[in-house]
């Protein structure tokens, strides 16, 4: 048992994870560029024109993957936060902090592209639909996390306070989602129903999946690159970091 544990925890030390992240980073970056390149080509030139929404629907290929990522990244942050609080590993909190800006970025992209999609389709930039509203609240949660961790100078406190906040947020997300949904049905504000999506052709589906995988690869690459900077900054007084800088490998 103990030998397996050591295997798992080997890369939880910044000194061993830094080179690993450096080796993995280019692969994910290249994968992201290739997949997003293929995905964008397919979404503009290969995917057929929608019989109802015309060409405007093509924004779905970035909108939906961004919305998926925005929610998924928060869950991954919660996973790392829980791990960090339980095992007291420094790297977990660094991963959570490295993911947060990308999560906020995707949330923003999802909202922004949603507005651009909504204008030609429904004639309005914004409706107080349950999904839109909960996505907006998700953006607030990301902002709260980033604000809290950057306001605390002591890194150990910032890590653990941020981790607690993410976990509190994760418990709240379902409650927020359902409360917003019920609030929406009570008000009956929007007549647009997002549930009834027209069935997609397989080309559209594949395009969207390729874009989603591209966004995954981008997220991993961005997080790895950011976590490398965080590691170097925090461990600047350690021998391994100084050695790397001296050898020009950092």
């Amino acid at each position: 048992m103990s030998s397996r544990l050591i295997n798992w925890f080997k890369f939880s030390s910044p000194a061993t994870f830094y080179p690993l992240a450096g080796r993995l980073l280019p692969w994910f970056a290249v994968t992201a560029v290739v997949l997003i390149g293929i995905g964008l080509y397919m979404s503009f030139f290969v995917a057929p024109t929608d019989y109802k929404q015309g060409e405007g629907y093509r924004i779905i290929f970035i909108h939906v993957p961004a919305a998926w990522m925005s929610m998924f990244i928060y869950l991954v942050m919660a996973f790392w936060s829980a791990l960090g609080l339980i095992f007291n590993t420094r790297l977990s909190a660094m991963m959570a902090q490295a993911l947060a800006p990308t999560g906020a970025l995707f949330t923003f992209i999802a909202l922004w592209t949603g507005a651009f999609w909504g204008k030609p389709m429904w004639g309005t930039w914004w409706v107080w639909d349950a999904r839109l509203t909960s996505e907006l609240i998700l953006l607030f949660l990301y902002m709260g996390y980033i604000a809290l961790t950057s306001a605390i100078e002591d890194t150990r406190r910032a890590d653990r306070a941020g981790a607690l906040l993410v976990l509190v947020g994760v418990v709240n997300i379902p409650i927020i989602y359902y409360s917003v949904e019920w609030w929406n049905t009570l008000h009956q504000g929007s007549t647009i129903n997002f549930r009834k999506e027209s069935s997609m052709t397989t080309t559209m589906l594949y395009t969207m999946l390729i874009m989603a995988l591209g966004c995954w690869a981008y997220t991993i690459a961005a997080a790895l690159s950011r976590v490398r900077s965080i590691m170097l900054e925090r461990e600047r007084n350690s021998t391994w970091a100084q050695q790397l800088v001296a050898e020009g490998k950092a």
């Binding site: 947020g169 927020i176 917003v180």
Partner: peptide, 17 residues
């Protein structure tokens, strides 16, 4: 100011109901 950023999103369900 920070506490408002953290707490207000979590208050939303209470406001709604």
């Amino acid at each position: 100011v920070l506490v408002s950023l953290l707490v207000l999103p979590l208050y939303i369900p209470v406001l709604i109901f």
